[in-house]
């Protein structure tokens, strides 16, 4: 485990040097929240109105939280890097290194993700308070549960991204798959809670990864209840195992293929 800590710290330190980049990049994140604040401001005629059971305040917080979680991971770059390593055969160099490739990918990206997450949480909460004037009331224990669900959702998201990158073992280019994945997240999870969709689609969203990466953790923040919290965390643990399993499987399959080809 110590070696992963070292990888993580090295990545954290090197990314601290590019703080300016992260600050400028966050402008896009701020603008998204800014736009959605205005959209919901326009749609909700009076502040007490409920749409599909959500108040205006809850809707703005919903988008803020899903954006924080999604934007903390530089998904496109992560997929592209893995995809390139697989295609160029560089991944073969990692086979005889004393760590797991999936572990390496996760920990080397987590450093950057940590910085961005801390930064985005500060901006996100700041924006929310400026726009809405208040923050949902949560107890400390509830806050800890919510934080755990956010962290789990980010890790699951990263594992799925790793899996998509590793798909390059069996398909020529896995970037279109990333595109599909991020689009689905955006349309069915980040912008609207699942209550906004036709009843026929809702069960599909509930069992999809979108539930654990976007809807669940955001809903917990705006409307906490213990029953739902347990469901979300359990679902996240299940998806954590599924995504991890998928990565391992794909990597093993890919390594076999490398051996056949002689590396």
């Amino acid at each position: 485990m110590r070696k992963y800590t070292v990888i993580y710290m090295a990545n954290l330190m090197s990314n601290l040097q590019y703080m300016a980049n992260i600050i400028i990049n966050s402008l896009g994140f701020i603008v998204h929240i800014f736009i959605f604040f205005h959209v919901w401001n326009y749609i909700y005629e009076n502040p007490a109105e409920l749409i599909y059971g959500f108040s205006k305040t809850q809707m703005v917080w919903y988008v803020t939280i899903t954006e924080i979680i999604f934007c903390s991971v530089a998904g496109r770059r992560m997929v592209r890097t893995i995809c390139n390593e697989v295609r160029s055969g560089n991944v073969a160099y990692n086979i005889n290194k004393p760590y797991s490739y999936v572990g390496y990918i996760m920990f080397s990206n987590l450093g950057e993700v940590t910085i961005r997450l801390v930064f985005y949480v500060m901006i996100g909460l700041g924006l929310g308070i400026t726009f809405l004037g208040s923050i949902p009331t949560i107890t400390i224990i509830e806050g800890i549960v919510i934080a755990i669900s956010w962290i789990l959702s980010i890790i699951i998201n990263m594992l799925f991204l790793t899996f998509i990158g590793l798909l390059a073992f069996i398909m020529e280019d896995s970037n279109p798959m990333y595109w599909l994945y991020s689009k689905m997240q955006l349309i069915f999870g980040i912008v609207f809670p699942l209550e906004f969709f036709p009843t026929a689609i809702q069960p599909i969203i509930k069992i999809s990864p979108i539930f654990v990466t976007s809807y669940g953790p955001a809903k917990l923040f705006i409307d906490f209840n213990w029953r739902f919290a347990i469901i979300v965390i359990l679902a996240q643990i299940a998806y954590l195992l599924i995504s991890l399993g998928l990565c391992k499987l794909m990597y093993m399959k890919g390594v076999k293929k490398l051996n056949v080809n002689g590396g």
Binding site: M13, L16, Q17, Y18, M19, A20
Partner: peptide, 10 residues
């Protein structure tokens, strides 16, 4: 070099 150096150079 280092984080401090980066900040300083900005």
């Amino acid at each position: 070099k280092g984080f401090k150096g980066s900040l300083k150079s900005i």
